[in-house]
């Protein structure tokens, strides 16, 4: 079973994401910010990270840069999932090493499509 780490400071978003991902057959873990997410990844790298941008403690961009610098940190696919819809910001996320980008609000169809395009059918 493939694993997905959902990183978002909103409990509601984490809950919605978990339901969508579990329906898609993923094993889901949750983190409320980049610091928690780094701790999780240091223990075990997930197959994919669904990553919010604006969070307390450590934001999504900082987490992404640190993750990619970790041993094995290139392997997880990272899908930003953010309310930021400015194309320059989306370009910035992709250039920093994100594999895909989802603009909030989203639904199960969008998440399924993005993950399938990354070869991540669970």
């Amino acid at each position: 079973m493939k694993t997905c780490l959902v990183v978002d400071d909103s409990r509601v978003i984490r809950k919605v994401s978990r339901r969508i991902l579990e329906d898609l057959g993923f094993e889901v873990a949750e983190a409320a910010d980049g610091v928690e997410a780094m701790a999780w990844c240091s223990a075990v790298m997930p197959d994919v990270v669904l990553l919010d941008w604006v969070m307390p403690a450590m934001d999504g961009m900082e987490f992404l840069k640190r993750l990619r610098a970790e041993p094995g940190g290139q392997r997880p696919k990272v899908v930003f999932c953010s309310g930021e819809t400015d194309l320059a910001r989306i370009r910035e996320a992709l250039e920093a090493g994100a594999d895909e980008y989802i603009m909030k609000p989203f639904d199960g169809g969008i998440v399924a499509g993005k993950l399938a395009s990354l070869g991540l059918a669970a």
């Binding site: 819809t85 400015d86 194309l87 989306i90 370009r91 992709l94 994100a98 895909e100 980008y101 989802i102 603009m103 989203f106 169809g109 969008i110 499509g113 993005k114 395009s117």
Partner: peptide, 18 residues
Amino acid sequence: FEVQRGLPARTLVRHFEK
């Protein structure tokens, strides 16, 4: 909603403007 169905983010930033 429409640009998130099937359109890769890289293609979006390459060919679209807000």
